[in-house]
Structures are given as structure tokens and as C-alpha cells.
Design a protein around this nucleic acid. Sequence first.
DNA 1: CCAATTTTAACACTCAGTGCCATAATCGCG
DNA 2: CGCGATTATGGCACTGAGTGTTAAAATTGG
Lengths: 205, 205
Amino acid sequence: MEQRRSPGRPAETDPDAIALIALRLFAHRGVDEVTMTEIAQAAGVSRRTLFRWFPSKAALIWGGTLEADERFEAAWTSVLPHEAATGEAGSSPGLMQRVRAAYAASISPLGETSDVTRLRLRLIAENPAVYAWGHDLRERMAAHLAAHIAETIGMPPDSVRVRALVAAISGASYAALAWWAQHDDPRPPVEVLDEALEALAAAFE
Amino acid sequence: MEQRRSPGRPAETDPDAIALIALRLFAHRGVDEVTMTEIAQAAGVSRRTLFRWFPSKAALIWGGTLEADERFEAAWTSVLPHEAATGEAGSSPGLMQRVRAAYAASISPLGETSDVTRLRLRLIAENPAVYAWGHDLRERMAAHLAAHIAETIGMPPDSVRVRALVAAISGASYAALAWWAQHDDPRPPVEVLDEALEALAAAFE
DNA sequence: CCAATTTTAACACTCAGTGCCATAATCGCG
DNA sequence: CGCGATTATGGCACTGAGTGTTAAAATTGG
């Protein structure tokens, strides 16, 4: 895997370092109170360059989280073999188990860098505009989940029922992550997520 | 109910008319493509006054929807008497039924002005930034629901479980409304919402 | 050294949203 | 009627996010 050096002027900018500086500023004074110009100065780059690497304030916070849907999809298909385990008659065979496994797998990388992740999630949960910026990611994950659920319960992915189930599961999952970010629970986020999904499944029995 | 006339200069502005003009512009050219200055001109008011009546673009779209939490709370307490009906052992006595009734009641006024409501909801669902603006409303409704659920299942309102259930229910409800807005289903929104909540309850049995 | 390529910075611009202030139109009261 | 209190309006200026454009700087390969 020889990384071919691309032509042109090499970047003097370390996006991760900039994001970290910005996150600290946000944590101390609030997202809306920190100006992009300030961040640029604190990071030692021009305002314009800051905007080239991070097209918005929210982008500084979401960072590299935006590939979570690929991990989700990969995890889902890798949990397939277990389908022989629980085969109930009604509606959801091993659906909830697969959802839990897939979500867990797609989230697990968060456990490593707990501090920064907690901060990121907290900022996202606190600021609606920042949360809104992740809409595309949520849409992609929802589309994947909808396809799977639709197939499982035998309904079109665009039906109200499938949409409602997807929204319920995604909503509960995000709520679990947000809760973890805002509390001091020492467990890794995966376990909290798992508890939430378990509670969801148990609430209607 | 004699409406006491307040002192000061009477308003020459009809906020509903302005909102309607704005909604039509949004529908035709997209929210982001219409400028507040344009709306002001089209409505025959100064830019400054437009901003006085509607503090943001999103406010033009959300309109008077922001008291839905009060209707929700009122509806919830009014459905109380039914509690003697279904008293299961496990976790949720008549909880899902009460949730459905309360949501239905808090949403029912939407059925009357279907066209504009559909448009509003569609714009909200299409534009994350607009959706984000309703965050306070969602928080208030979530707080109410959390209190009720917490009481019902005997867990603190701040626990992961309660948070997850609240998020699931609210998420599914909003998904149902958004679905109704984006499709041509002739049913009133209440029925679609009801179907969604029913599906949610049925999915885990 | 030269051409292609990429990063950076500087400048100017649009638009959302806010603060301030002067002016206009109504109230109740003497 | 005239006067102060009160509220709506409009104009002006300002901040701050985000974008387009362009010229200079730093690398690549030839």
C-alpha cells in the first residue's frame, strides 16, 4: 500500500488539530458564542482555509462520524448467520437482535476515544442546528434499516409502518447515545445503547 | 370575553397572510432559494417588520404549531378515566392506549386545514434547519411524555429506558406525520398516526 | 527551468438575524 | 382638544456564516 504522493502544494493544515481546538472552544464558551474567525485565528489558519476544510461549524463537531452508515450496513450483513436461532411466528424473528448487534458494531469505535466523543455528542445534543447537520447521515442509516425491516416484516420500505419502526429504533438509539454523553455512566456507549433497545423491546410484551 | 383593545398603534400587519405568502414562495422555489427580503416585498412590509413578526424563516413555517404540547398535556389527563380497562401485569397497563389518544387529540386540529398543514409539514421534513427550529416544542412534549411514562413503568424520568421509550414514541409519531405530508393518503393525519403507533406496539409481540 | 497541480490567503459579496432610533398611530386622561 | 404613555413601523448599520474569485506559494514530474 505505497501511498502515492499527490502533486501540488502539500497541506500545512492538520484538520484533526483544528477540530480539537474548536471543540475545546465550544465546550468552554458554547457553540454559538465562538466565531469561525476566532477558531481560524486560534488554529493559525486563514478564515477561508478553515472554511475549505470544514464547510460549517457543525462540520467541526461531527468530524469523521459520517461513515457510520457503512459500518452499520457491514455489521448487519455480518450478523446474518444467526438467523436460525429465534424464529417466532408473528412479526419479528431475530430482528431486534440483529438491530442491536448492527448498531453496537457501528458504534463500537466510539468507545475508544471516549472523552472527545462525549464532548462531540454533547454539543450535538445541545444545539439543534448542529444536530440538524447530521441529517444526511441519519437518512442513509434510516434507508438501510428500512430496507431490512421491510424485508423482515414483509411490507414496502415506504409504508407508514416501516417508517414508524425505523424512526422508533433510530430515535431510541440516538437518545441512548445522547444520554450517555450527558451523564457520567462509566459503561461504554455500546452497553447503554443495548439497554435502550432492550427496554424498547421489553416495553410492549 | 370582551377583547380589551390594547393601547398604542394598531397593527397593519396580518401575520397569517404573510405566512401564507411565504409558504407559497417556499413551495415553488424551495426554502433556501427564497430570501427574507423577497418575502417582505411580496407581503408589502419592511424587512424589519417581517423579522419582528417572524424571528426566522423557520418561524414562518412552524406558525402556530407551537402550542401542541399544551393540547397534548390536556388530552393526556382527560383520558385518565379509562385506566380501569386494561391492567396487565408486566409493564404497560393502558399506556399505549393513552399515548395514542393523547397524541391523536393534540394533532386533531391539523385535520381541518389539511392543505396548508401538509405543505408546512413537508417543508419541515425536507429542510433539516427548519426541523431543528421546532426543537423546543419537541423537548416540551418529550418532557411531558417522559413524566407519564416514568410514572407508569416506575423508573426515573431521566433513566435511559424512559428516554429511549420517549424517543421511540415521538420519533414514530413524527415519522407518521411526515409520511402523511409526503404522500397522497386521503385519511386524516390522526389515523395515519394511529396506525403507526399501533404498528409500533404490534412489532414486539 | 517548465508545466501541471494543489494549498493558501486576501478580498468582496450575499443573506440571516439583531440593535438602535426616529416616526406614526392609537389609547386614556385632564 | 392637547398630552403623555404605549405599540407598530421603517430605515440604517452592524455582526457573523458561508461562497466565489483570484493571485501567490509550494510541490510534483519531465
